[in-house]
Write a protein that binds this DNA or RNA. Sequence first.
DNA 1: ATGCGGACCTGTTAGC
DNA 2: TGCTAACAGGTCCGCA
Length: 271
Amino acid sequence: MPELPEVETTRRGIAPHLQGHQVREVIVRQRQLRWPIPRNLNALLRGQTIEQIDRRGKYLLLGMDTGTLILHLGMSGSLRILPATTPVQKHDHLDIVLDNGQCLRLRDPRRFGAVLWTRKDPARHKLLQSLGPEPLSDEFDGDYLWQRSRGRKLAIKSFVMDSKIVTGVGNIYANEALFIAGIHPQRAAGRISRERYQQLAVAIKQVLEAAIREGGTTLRDFTASDGKPGYFRLKLHVYERDQEPCHQCGKALRQIVIAQRSTYYCQHCQR
DNA sequence: ATGCGGACCTGTTAGC
DNA sequence: TGCTAACAGGTCCGCA
């Protein structure tokens, strides 16, 4: 489900409900996610105040008194703010109950998500320490991509989806950005000019920012923390549009597979 | 170092 | 109608 815009939409939705509140209780119903939820999470979090709610790539970071809770939504995770008395549904794995009777509830059918605790600077956590720059930051630009791509032979689409290169660009937005930049998704990363990398960096920023403004992309089941869907799907140029007409030239879009991921592009507009 | 494929897990849908 | 296979928004890990 969630790429960076959906995670950012979630962050903005939950932050005002969490900020400054104390954890009353943590209820874990299913600890087997991508990695097991720590056994003693209730003891660790109880009584702590949630000070800030940050995002790094697709990771959500709940900064507390003595450490940071690291959350990842995987492919199918979602977070809602609900009264703690709301009946539990299938795949509701975790509740963080607050001092005001509300709770942050994690649902994740596929269980590719993660909930981890660290006492140190989360940037130095094993899962975060090798992440590339934030795509919306100033350090991420065409020169950076060009420099990192020299000598690389993998497909440009796989390159921009590599979290060590840039964090948070997933399958939907990689497809969309490459269309906007007019770059064929299979082109070798090392064979793209500096100028075209400038266009690609701009396209990535543009598409992520637009998606955040629309509240993310709802394909099947993404909803923000208030239950509302995201509307960026209406503006997708290529994703899940196999055989439909290109918005630029009208020719039929194509679907192929790159690194086991569905890839959509226009044979005419992308080179 | 680089690049690829497998692994994790469940739900939905397309096809026979 | 019912069974089976393919596919889905992620990403770590191990192997060549």
